Simulated assay, not measured.
Amino acid sequence: MNNTNILEKCLPDFGKELISEIENFGIIKEFPNNDFIVKQGQLIRYLPIVLEGNVKAYSEEDGMQFLLYFIRQGSSCIFSFVHLFNQNPIDFSAISEGKSTILLIPIDKAKEWLIRYPSFNNLIINEFQKHYNDLLHTTKQIVCYKLEERLWSYLQTKAKVSNTHELAISHQSIADDLGTTREVISRLIKKIELDKKVVQNHRKIKLLISDF
């Protein structure tokens, strides 16, 4: 599939003129699993949009990782939008989950297209609202939910964005995302396994119950 087809498939509302501009000025790049797309402390040079695959956005403080949300095909990152209009180092990281194809739009072009193209402006507004809701949900979980409930919600979200009921993910990786220890996660996964919500096999976690 050539670049035009990929862009038209993933960004169907953009129209031919904007797609042509993106082909001229944007960069389409493939990232292997666990590769940094943007890294905390850097300056933003591009607005990333996920064309294929999934991306995890998180922040890190005092050596502790804190999951913000997942970014799926056709979406970008709310924190990237904020940095369109300032030159401060970013306070988040985004890494690919599995092989991902990312569209990188230069910051100056992103600012220009916000004004020139309503479809591009709509994408920014819609993504801002969606990820704002994601952050509200994450905050509510931390404040109101027990860790076991947060873990179960995390596994369901992870399965949904990965489009699979079988997750190849380590207990340590889950612990990093939820800001706890591997031992605690191992204990809680064993508990929900006894509740017949998941089954573990060969370092994989299979969801037996899901909402998709």
Rank of each mutant, 00 (worst) to 15 (best):
K39C: 09
N163G: 09
S76K: 00
F92A: 03
N133R: 14
L151F: 10
T139N: 12
R150E: 10
K130D: 02
I105D: 04
K99T: 12
V161N: 09
L11T: 06
E183K: 11
S75F: 05
I71G: 03
R72V: 15
V198K: 05
C77I: 13
F128Q: 02
R187M: 03
D13E: 15
S100G: 05
P32W: 08
G63M: 11
R182H: 01
K196F: 08
A175G: 00
L123I: 05
D176C: 10
P118M: 14
N54C: 12
F79V: 01
K29T: 05
S210K: 14
S153C: 14
I124M: 13
Y132W: 08
P89C: 04
V50Y: 01
Q141G: 10
A57Q: 03
D108T: 09
F25I: 14
Y46H: 01
L11Q: 00
E30R: 07
E52Q: 12
W152T: 11
L178W: 01
E193G: 01
E97F: 08
L67S: 03
I205V: 09
F66H: 13
D176T: 08
R72M: 14
S59C: 05
E112N: 09
K191N: 00
A159P: 01
S80T: 12
V50R: 05
G179D: 08
Y132T: 10
F25E: 13
L178I: 09
Y58M: 07
Y69W: 06
L47N: 05
E61S: 06
I102T: 06
E97D: 13
L147E: 02
V143K: 13
G74N: 01
L178V: 08
E149W: 06
A57L: 10
H137T: 14
E149Y: 03
I209G: 08
L68V: 12
F92R: 01
Y154W: 11
L68N: 07
D211L: 11
A110P: 04
G63A: 10
F14V: 04
N163L: 15
N5Q: 12
V82Y: 06
R203K: 15
K146Y: 04
N163K: 15
S20K: 14
S119E: 08
K196A: 13
N54T: 15
D177A: 09
G74T: 06
E183R: 10
E52G: 01
I189P: 02
C10I: 13
S80Q: 10
S162L: 15
D91T: 09
N133G: 05
D177T: 03
L67F: 08
E193Q: 09
K158A: 11
K140F: 03
I209D: 14
L147T: 06
F25H: 13
I90G: 03
E127T: 04
N201W: 14
L207V: 02
K9V: 13
D91A: 10
Q87D: 12
D35L: 15
L7I: 00
A159I: 08
I209Y: 15
L114K: 06
T180M: 09
T157W: 10
F85R: 07
D211T: 11
N33K: 03
K197F: 00
E97W: 05
K146H: 02
A175E: 00
I22S: 04
S80D: 11
K206Q: 12
I125T: 07
Q172I: 08
L104E: 05
L11G: 03
A175S: 05
S93C: 05
L104S: 04
D108L: 10
L7N: 02
D91Y: 09
G179L: 13
D108S: 10
H83I: 09
I169W: 07
Y58N: 07
F25C: 13
N33I: 04
